[in-house]
Design a protein around this nucleic acid. Structure first.
Lengths: 323, 323
DNA sequence: CAAGCCAGGTTTAACGTTACACACTCGGGC
DNA sequence: GCCCGAGTGTGTAACGTTAAACCTGGCTTG
């Protein structure tokens, strides 16, 4: 018990005793047993970060920041890959698996808000991305609709009139993509450009390969686009790749704008214009909200935090010399 | 106890009882408490994956595969970012932190083999990358020297004579980079090209920014290179960026070869030639070795597994039309 | 028909920690 | 001289799980 008091820095331990204990700890190499602590405390000290996959530039960068924020608050983060699969998402929410966590930061893809609410069942939860009217937990978002509108307006301002939007997804929980489509349509309308469903192909996964495939199909089609607004940077990189493969120039023949503000976009060739959400802010707020919800309990009302974004204009969408 | 038997599928439970227990579990929503299990078992069911940072394409892709392999074997993976910092590496090895793990897969950077051995102190350990003569644990490697030699020989075969090597690092534990430098020098020697220290600049971190900086400095120097062998794909992407910034063409003016075989390299512009280690194999073997060492104890001798690699030749190092 | 065995189920104890109650000592204060 | 309280330190019990020992009837076996 005295050892416990010393280790935890509890009062009522004399300096002499404290010293003696610390020396002994050092000598015999005592390390507190976390399982016992967790059992006793009813906590695990770990939280989950449930995302589709970690080898997505955006989630990798976000994970880096989130791990740092978590460490600062004394939490360990456990990354769970849901692959956008409903069953895996359900499992992550319910907290199955050999390692228990006290809550999670979740980026839903397959599940809609109601299902998320049902599965989480009172577990402390912070959602990333838009969630319909009210989320089943705290929510951290960016203004997807506004950001998309800006991005597309930027392309239209360059004189482009056949702007494709790549990233609408058949997955149910991708409210983010619906908002971005809405922003896209709003920008088109504002410029008096009719919406053409064929220019908004669906993709299953936000990968470079699917970006290249989707944009390649558009470029090979009867009425190719002259610009692409991709819903993430990996899709955008795929779009650039598809254009190059066909001997088209970026941005002259095809202007491209991405989303996520990843480092990869910055070092692309040409450097990629992209909507950069405040990733550090998102990571910080997500951990802050989760920490509060876990420690302060569930009398807190659900909160929504909106983080800023910025359109980083780069070479992939500069006005072409001749146009 | 009977519940425990049912949950674990132990024998000596009648079908009737089993049924009754399962129904009750369902009804009251019983979930086994992992902390108690871990306390009882003396295990945590989790392993660490200690790497510099997760927002490095290679580690992100490797993490994805490792998480999958681990899940298949019933392990949870905890990613720890060491930032290449000695103190953080020591902590990861010793298993500090609020969440205990039963072992780890470790990519050392700051620490040398002896320090690793001292810190790990008997914890089940699998090392990624070369470790001098004998590792302080199981080791999974690729033939760094051979791979580097192939890559550089490929550049020399294109007629390049001023091949830079970017990636030698001042960090102590980067045995990988020493081997790659060795392969680089071997290839030069074989082709009768003298080694020029100025063409092998040091970098602190394997990031796109440092790749661009290092190669930019070389290109701005008195005797610029006509080819670059970068020690990872991010450095290579930075190299391409630096060349483009200066109006140079890749591969005509500067051929570039990377290392890691990341998806990013494939979709680069131009697509990046890269040495692709068998990442899936590395992930699989690493988890297999770690699993065996944890479950079978330490009477096992240290093992070294060498995985294959492949030089993927792409646009960034094709023979220039005119050369 | 007693002994033995077996399937099915229960009790005990222990894993390491810590909240809480309890015990002891030593200076004052009345 | 007695009590009080502050400052220290110790004992107890409980967190949820499970290996191992232990019951308990019914059934086989010699």
């Amino acid at each position: 018990m005295t050892v416990s008091n010393v280790v935890r820095g509890a009062p009522n331990v004399s300096d002499a005793t404290r010293q003696r204990v610390l020396e002994t700890i050092e000598r015999i190499g005592y390390v507190p047993n976390s399982s016992a602590r967790n059992l006793r405390a009813g906590r695990s000290g770990a939280v989950s970060f449930a995302i589709p996959t970690i080898d997505n530039s955006y989630f990798a960068e976000l994970a880096r920041l989130l791990l740092d924020e978590a460490a600062a608050l004394g939490w360990t983060v456990l990354i769970e890959q849901t692959k956008g699969d409903g069953e895996l998402e359900r499992r992550a929410l319910a907290g199955y698996g050999p390692t228990p966590t006290d809550g999670l930061v979740f980026f839903p893809q397959a599940l809609v808000a109601d299902e998320v609410a049902a599965q989480a069942a009172g577990r402390p939860l912070v959602l990333l991305g838009e969630q319909g009217d009210r989320g089943p937990g705290d929510v951290v978002i960016v203004d997807n609709e506004g950001a998309a509108r800006e991005a597309v307006a930027h392309l239209l301002a360059l004189g482009r009139r056949r702007v494709a939007a790549v990233g609408e997804s058949p997955a149910a929980g991708t409210e983010n993509s619906h908002r971005r489509i809405a922003g896209y349509r709003a920008a088109l309308e504002e410029a008096g450009v009719p919406f053409e469903p064929a220019l908004a192909p669906r993709v299953d996964h936000y990968t470079r390969a699917e970006g290249a495939e989707a944009v390649g199909a558009l470029l090979d089609g009867p009425a190719p686009p002259d610009a692409v607004f991709a819903f993430n940077d990996m899709l955008a990189v795929g779009a650039v790749h598809a254009a190059r493969e066909r001997g088209l120039r970026v941005p002259e023949d095809l202007a491209v704008v991405g989303f996520d503000g990843t480092d990869e976009a910055r070092y692309c060739n040409p450097p990629l214009t992209t909507v950069a959400p405040d990733k550090r802010g998102i990571a910080r707020e997500a951990m802050r909200l989760l920490n509060e919800r876990i420690t302060r309990g569930d009398d807190l009302p659900y909160r929504t935090v909106r983080m800023g974004h910025e359109l980083l204009v780069r070479g992939s969408s500069l006005a072409a010399a001749g146009s």
